[in-house]
């Protein structure tokens, strides 16, 4: 067992679905077997070796040397190990992952980390719509783990999220945390319209008061001990909440009987 590195032979001409190819699967399979592994490619399927040069890599690591926006489902379902993409990825990256680390140095398409239940995703670029959300027809989005987006997130990030932590270094698009059930989202940049609509519980940490739906009630500014605890217990929030003791707390979406909160720190 060792690591695997994939390097595209040429630019992809159709979408490739890499969703069963987790680090655990790749590392447990011989390079020769991997070359013959059939992967969905456009409307057909082709052996992996036809699309990529397959080589060894450090133990437990699956490396995709040149990313492509047509690579879908990268790291989907992974439960451990490390998957590194040098470049961008398509939709459904890290979908339903339950453990391990997925690092992407470029942008990601829609549904990044959708319904993930553990592990950690670190995206250096921007994410498409529905980051950490629920897939179409699904009742629950991300339930645990950390989804860290250094850039901005598209529409409806954290939709129906029910746990875990989403960190957005840039701006968040419209409909952030729509129907959020629980969990935490921290946004360093601006927040689009209709954030928190239908929110049941959960926390949105923001720097400035966004334009919120009518169902949010302003409870005023409070000294919250929980902020000091979060700053120390959650390393990912340490910088955001350093020396923060007070927050303006808006509760909603009260029109839906929700008790979620937007904390302006």
């Amino acid at each position: 067992m060792s690591g695997v590195s994939l390097k595209p032979r040429a630019a992809l001409e159709a979408r490739v679905d890499l969703s069963g190819l987790t680090p655990a699967v790749a590392c447990a399979t011989s390079l020769r077997e991997l070359e013959h592994l059939a992967v969905p490619y456009g409307a057909t399927s082709v052996p992996l070796g036809e699309l990529f040069f397959i080589e060894g890599a450090p133990e437990g690591v699956l490396l995709i040397e040149i990313g492509d926006e047509r690579l879908d489902g990268v790291g989907a379902g992974m439960a451990g190990g490390e998957l590194i993409v040098d470049g961008r990825v398509g939709a459904w990256a890290g979908r339903g992952m339950s453990g391990g680390v997925l690092r992407i140095s470029g942008d990601a398409g829609d549904f990044l980390g959708a319904e993930m239940s553990g592990g950690r995703i670190e995206l250096a670029g921007n994410a498409g719509a529905h980051a950490g959300g629920a897939s179409s027809g699904s009742r629950r989005g991300m339930s645990d783990g950390v989804l860290k987006i250094a850039g901005s997130a598209g529409e409806r990030a954290g939709a129906r999220q029910r746990g875990g932590l989403i960190l957005i270094g840039g701006d968040a698009g419209a409909g952030l945390a729509t129907g959020m059930i629980a969990g935490t989202i921290s946004v360093a940049g601006s927040v689009g319209t209709l954030a928190g609509r239908g929110m049941k519980r959960g926390t949105l940490l923001v720097n400035a008061l966004p334009e919120l739906p009518a169902g949010f009630a302003d409870t005023g500014t409070h000294d919250l001990v929980a902020l000091r605890l979060l700053a120390r217990r959650v390393p990912d929030l340490a910088a955001t909440l350093k020396d923060v003791t007070q927050a303006r707390r808006l509760v909603g979406d009260t029109l839906m009987g929700g008790q979620g909160e937007v904390l302006v720190v």
Binding site: V225, A226, L229, V234
Partner: peptide
Amino acid sequence: GHQISKKLAGKRFWRLPVMEGEFV
């Protein structure tokens, strides 16, 4: 019913609204 739970970094804690503010 106004209690708030947070589970982060593998640990769950609760925030209870009280007259003085919040009990964590």
